[in-house]
Design a protein around this nucleic acid. Sequence first.
DNA 1: ATGGACCTTCCCACCATGGGAAGGTCAAGC
DNA 2: GCTTGACCTTCCCATGGTGGGAAGGTCCAT
Lengths: 136, 136
Amino acid sequence: MIMSVNREMTIGQAAKSSAVSAKMIRHYESIGLLHKAHRTEAGYRLYDETDVHTLRFIQRARSLGFPLETIRTLLALWRNRRRSSAQVKELSLRHVADLERKITEMQAMVRTLKHLAHNCHGDDRPDCPILDDLAG
Amino acid sequence: MIMSVNREMTIGQAAKSSAVSAKMIRHYESIGLLHKAHRTEAGYRLYDETDVHTLRFIQRARSLGFPLETIRTLLALWRNRRRSSAQVKELSLRHVADLERKITEMQAMVRTLKHLAHNCHGDDRPDCPILDDLAG
DNA sequence: ATGGACCTTCCCACCATGGGAAGGTCAAGC
DNA sequence: GCTTGACCTTCCCATGGTGGGAAGGTCCAT
């Protein structure tokens, strides 16, 4: 293979440098989130530092819970020098609202379950307020 | 059809009485969460009050976020007169721990995003700490 | 008999990720 | 120059819970 001149790397190396699995890199390419990688004569994908930078961007955005479709937009904004920060902020705050809605839902579940569990003896006997609740 | 004698009902009626969609009732049957419904000669599924009771149990458990595999166990415990409430309680508290872990993760996302958004002007200019963060 | 509301099965989609099979390629050591 | 092992390729399948929709059969009231 030998990638002397412009420090290109294989998918495995790009995966290590970006903390995105090779599997996912291929997937992101297949859904058009990533440009099609160019290939060696043998068909191996090749990545450069710019690609790794993009992959890290995606990785970080995923770690903040952004869905891939939103990340697609964020990437476009990132690359667009004429973007308005207002667009980025709005996407982010919408995502925050989404997260908060889910958090609130789960907190309600936790409250209910803790309350039920608190009233459950948790011993050898079958009597159980949790099952009573589920059974309505 | 005519379901006179023992107030049996079709899947649509069971769906209405249990707040579980007909689609899901069939799915639960297909994964063995529900007994196979018996059928009319024409092949229509038939449900009685006991089935609806079970469906409501599942519905309530789902609304508390229990995964179907756990619900399978909860149903078995519900039906088992020799169960120990300890088992039910443990399943519930494990689920609570799961929820709390997810909540904590999402809260961390929210904190970070709010912090970044707070420092973002959100105007026509392109400068954006959110993108700066994602870009590393 | 017709029409509409219901039922059936079957396949596909979402979302993000991973597993694994079958086969090709590279580089190093012998 | 051959073997070996680590890598790469594509392709299909699975997860979990839910919904959409097509093509076709059934029930019942008008």
